[in-house]
Design a protein around this nucleic acid. Structure first.
Length: 260
DNA sequence: ATGGCATGCAGGGCATGA
């Protein structure tokens, strides 16, 4: 079973990319972030034509998340929830479903903007809320995967230039501590279960030829509960779609689970 | 060195991203 996450930075612009990427990779479950469209504009039929059922919660212009389920290999999802039940929020940043006995949580974590920003306070509150919610959710669903754009680079090796970024938004000690708290729930970074090429990133700024210089960060992650970690046999970033015309600034991350 | 590039909304620049 292959589960993936991808911040597409507008599903309207990137629909063809998503369809092409799904065609090239036999993905069972794909989590999407930054749809940037309202629910009535969600391309349900186009994705159904690609063989995927969609579960989504969106809004105009900003945010929006979806989970695509392979119709042939999986079929339907159950127990769908939109947004964190313990956090009052107008921004559409979270969706969770159950497929094949696995709880799939898709999150678009707040960016934070800068440590001095009100948005950073919101980010830390959101991180606190998801952590408390997951503590309960993992009791209900021992097989749980948390996928998405975390907007946190967990370690210096996840940053192209750690000195330049030291202490800033995306890498600050507060954010990294919040990431550790998620791990302390019993979640494991699937990417770090395996030997990886150095300087592997999942996001590159559109500006300054950042992708060509590999001036990126690893901020998109897949965390797995213990039960899923035991059957995880691969995790990698696929840089390919970042090389296509008009790409998203993020690349997808894929993990493979045995026995499902 | 706070720009650079992309997107949405709106039909011109501004907000936002990371």
């Amino acid at each position: 079973m292959k589960i993936a996450t991808w911040n597409v930075n507008s599903l309207r612009i990137r629909l063809r990319h998503v369809q092409e990427w799904l065609k090239l990779n036999s993905i069972d479950v794909l989590c999407l972030q930054e749809l940037k469209l309202s629910d009535e504009k969600f391309p349900i039929d186009e994705l159904a034509n690609s063989g995927y059922n969609a579960y989504f919660t969106g809004q105009k212009t900003y945010n929006g998340v979806a989970i695509l389920i392979n119709q042939k290999s999986i079929g339907q999802a159950t127990d769908v929830i939109h947004n964190l039940p313990n956090f009052q929020d107008d921004q559409k940043r979270l969706i969770a479903v159950t497929v094949a006995g696995i709880r799939i949580v898709c999150g678009y974590f707040p960016n934070g903007q800068s440590l001095e920003s009100e948005k950073f306070i919101y980010k830390m509150k959101w991180l606190n809320a998801i952590t408390y919610w997951l503590f309960e959710e993992m009791k209900k669903y021992p097989r749980l995967a948390l996928l998405g754009d975390y907007n946190i680079a967990p370690e210096d090796r996840d940053v192209h230039d750690p000195q330049k970024w030291e202490g800033q938004n995306l890498v600050s000690p507060q954010e990294r501590k919040a990431f550790s708290r998620l791990e302390n729930l019993g979640l494991h970074d699937a990417f770090r279960l395996f030997k990886q090429p150095e300087k592997t990133f999942s996001w590159w700024d559109y500006r300054m030829n950042a992708f060509r210089r590999n001036a990126g960060m690893r901020i998109d992650h897949i965390l797995l509960s213990q039960a899923l970690t035991e059957v995880c046999i691969d995790c990698k970033v696929d840089r390919t779609p970042r090389t296509w015309e008009k790409p998203s600034d993020h690349a997808p991350v894929i993990t493979t689970l045995k026995y499902f």
